[in-house]
Design a protein around this nucleic acid. Sequence first.
DNA 1: CACCTGAATTAGTTTAACCTAAATAATTTA
DNA 2: TAAATTATTTAGGTTAAACTAATTCAGGTG
Lengths: 151, 151
Amino acid sequence: MEITKREEEYLETMYILQKNKGVIRVKDISKKLNVRPPSVVDALKKLNEKGLINYEKYDRIILTEKGLEIAKETYQKHVLLMKFFTEILGIPPEIAEEDACQFEHYVHEITAERMKEFAQYIQEHCPYVLKQFLKEHMEKEEAETQKSPPK
Amino acid sequence: MEITKREEEYLETMYILQKNKGVIRVKDISKKLNVRPPSVVDALKKLNEKGLINYEKYDRIILTEKGLEIAKETYQKHVLLMKFFTEILGIPPEIAEEDACQFEHYVHEITAERMKEFAQYIQEHCPYVLKQFLKEHMEKEEAETQKSPPK
DNA sequence: CACCTGAATTAGTTTAACCTAAATAATTTA
DNA sequence: TAAATTATTTAGGTTAAACTAATTCAGGTG
């Protein structure tokens, strides 16, 4: 049975909620994913069908072995992409977050892995060049921020 | 009126077909996007509604000003991402292609731009380190290729 | 313990994107 | 040019993912 990108996103969200709050509630998923509670319930039913979570109505939600595995993989990619975008490219966190949040569902294993290796390699072999690159762009951003009309 | 990721993909495909073949045919879009011709016709109707192409049945398809603009922007991101994945990370073209094909529709302008700048910066300031990084991974891939069962 | 409130759920729709099968138009070829 | 082939289109479905409105449940408080 196929798992969609969106389902992956639901799983990842639940995994993070579990980690941070200890429980997974419909309301919180709803808030995080910016969808209405009934949409969450729909998703939960499907994920349950597919054996990725254990869900019975009004009962607590638990990721299964398989669901947890997918959630973790996705989350790892997310973290890795975030690091790359912010630490190597110097992208502002909010933007990096959005980019990572999409790309994590599409990026091939090899590409993700390579990004991680590349980051390490550069940080080790030419940290100064990297620092310089980031510095130049930080300055540029500062300037942009100044320019923007002060509300 | 909103434009979807998929519509962006259609526009980009048509743009490339126009460039390479001179004409845009349903059959060719169908082949490139791996969908059946009726799906293409559906898409064409919507794009026409939205003023992104000029389309009347059995007539030739033309990108409008607006449609062309979107197509070009998307295509540029595609090219840029491809370059980054292959030339900086050393990802094999077929895989890079698939990654680029998805990410191009989500990546923020600033991230795309920064990837381009980063590539230039590294190629200029530490070409040897880059070459070394790529070399190491090429070798690894060679080895993998050997390992895989020779059909 | 009954009531109230907020959380979760059901029922019924909508939209984007696809599909198959059948019909029609355009193009090529005998 | 008529017939055959190929391309395009229509008609009618399907599925994923969302929505609103209305209902049901659960936990906390008087």
